[in-house]
Design a binder for these strands. Structure first.
Length: 259
DNA sequence: AAAGAGCGCAACCGCATACTC
DNA sequence: GGAGTATGCGGTTGCGCTCTT
């Protein structure tokens, strides 16, 4: 059978709208089915990913808060790279997001480590050196090429040891250490890498998904589908100019179901 | 102002597991 | 119980934006 070439790459706004519409209609389970009936010409996998990582109404946007970052560190020390598991403890955050955060963190750490490796700097009592130890004690198990990822966590004892009462510094200190180090190197600190901010204080970017702001959906997280008046949902999702187009999508979906 | 480097994030890939028939 | 299919997860890549020189 000749398989039609699937679309790949970044999603367009129109595709997003379509996907949201069909997920709203059929739920966020049957991805292959949704991929087919929507006519998106994407794989079910791709649709799921887009939904989970970007379009889901419960998603938070913007940087992780300090609390969230702490939690990630803590949970990673327990569970290692079990990103989805960690993500479940951070409502509104995706495994992808956490993975990216961790990668960035490790990258910074490596960079800092490199700088510190220069002979002039050896403040062994710094909190960073301690977390380095914690991280390295595990990461060093890996052989050969260094990876951004620590594949098994710091080791609970390592990091929790740092956090525990026995030590005189917290993860805050560790972060401060990184920030300070950056400060020293850059002189100009445009904005603290890591500042306390309220959950609502997130720096929202404005992706297309915000067009259908989650707050405007009566989303009930305990329910697989958004609860929404059909007429209302049509109005919100599809501007008058494209009504006909999306109704045809609707028809298409129904036709597929009813055969 | 232009070029290059670095960073952040979205998306893809391959494998594992769960589910359905 | 086994095969086929769908879904979930972790790792990796590539692109675009921002910052630096």
């Amino acid at each position: 059978m000749v398989q039609e070439e699937m679309r790949r790459g970044p999603w367009t706004e129109e595709e997003d709208l379509k996907l949201v519409y069909f997920v709203n209609m059929f739920g966020d389970r049957r991805w292959d089915f949704i991929a087919k009936v929507s006519g998106l010409n994407r794989t079910g996998k791709s649709c799921r990913l887009r939904w989970v990582n970007y379009l889901h109404p419960d998603l938070k946007r913007g940087k992780l808060t300090s609390q969230e970052e702490h939690l990630v560190m803590e949970l990673h020390s327990k569970w290692g790279n079990r990103w989805s598991r960690i993500a479940r403890k951070l409502p509104g955050r995706t495994d992808n997001e956490i993975k990216n955060f961790w990668r960035t963190f490790m990258r910074k750490k490596k960079a800092l480590e490199k700088k510190r490796a220069s002979p002039s700097s050896s403040s062994s009592s710094s909190s960073l050196s301690s977390i380095n130890h914690a991280v390295d004690s595990h990461a060093s198990k890996e052989v050969g090429e260094e990876s951004f990822y620590d594949t098994g966590g710091y080791g609970h004892d390592d990091v929790m040891g740092l956090i525990s009462a026995g030590e005189e510094f917290s993860l805050d200190d560790i972060w401060k250490d990184i920030v300070l180090s950056e400060d020293n190197n850059n002189n100009i600190q445009q904005e603290p890498l890591y500042e306390l901010q309220s959950q609502e204080g997130c720096n929202f970017s404005s992706p297309p998904a915000m067009i259908y702001s989650p707050s405007s959906w009566e989303y009930n997280s305990s329910h697989p589908l958004w609860v929404m008046d059909e007429e209302e949902s049509n109005k919100m999702l599809f501007p008058a100019t494209s009504d006909q187009y999306y109704y045809s999508c609707y028809e298409q979906g129904n036709a597929f179901l009813t055969g």
